[in-house]
């Protein structure tokens, strides 16, 4: 296998391991973090904090590199406009996140932890993406 496949495979595996160690594949823990008016569980703040600190360092390395290690160039989002889609979409996502305590990464990773319900989430998420795609085409 080439580095163009092995690199994302390694990254995905690391990501799934990190989510699981951090407790993010347990919806009860994620909903516990969102439950700031009830029995609050701050664990997710440590997960986010750890990830953001490492990535803040990675972003400082980017300008010192001519190109990525295994690709031709960097593809960094350059938009800065705050649109209704960005805010409305993020709000819808947040409602879904709150209802079941699952976001895309943990939902997919949990396929090996709670197969039936995680698969239900992943298929529903795909359906949501497809619905939007069909809606946007018309």
């Amino acid at each position: 296998m080439s580095s163009k496949i092995l690199t994302p495979l390694a990254a995905g595996t690391l990501f799934g391991a990190g989510l699981t160690i951090g407790g993010m594949t347990d919806p009860a823990r994620v909903r516990g973090f969102l439950d700031i008016f009830g029995d609050w569980d701050p664990t997710l703040a440590f997960v986010m904090g750890g990830a953001v600190i490492v990535m803040a360092i990675a972003w400082r390395i980017v300008p010192r590199m001519v190109e990525p290690l295994f690709a031709e160039k960097f593809h960094i989002p350059d938009r800065s406009d705050l649109t209704p889609s960005l805010i409305g979409g993020s709000a819808l996502f947040g409602v879904g996140w709150g209802i079941a305590g699952l976001c895309p990464g943990p939902g997919i990773a949990a396929l090996v932890i709670e197969p039936t319900l995680a698969a239900t989430f992943v298929v529903s998420m795909f359906a949501g993406m497809l619905i939007l795609r069909l809606f946007e085409r018309n």
Binding site: L86, L92, G96
Partner: peptide, 13 residues
């Protein structure tokens, strides 16, 4: 319900 909202919301956002 959550999955559909997450799917629509993350693409839109």
């Amino acid at each position: 319900v959550a999955g559909v909202l997450v799917g629509i919301g993350t693409r839109l956002g």
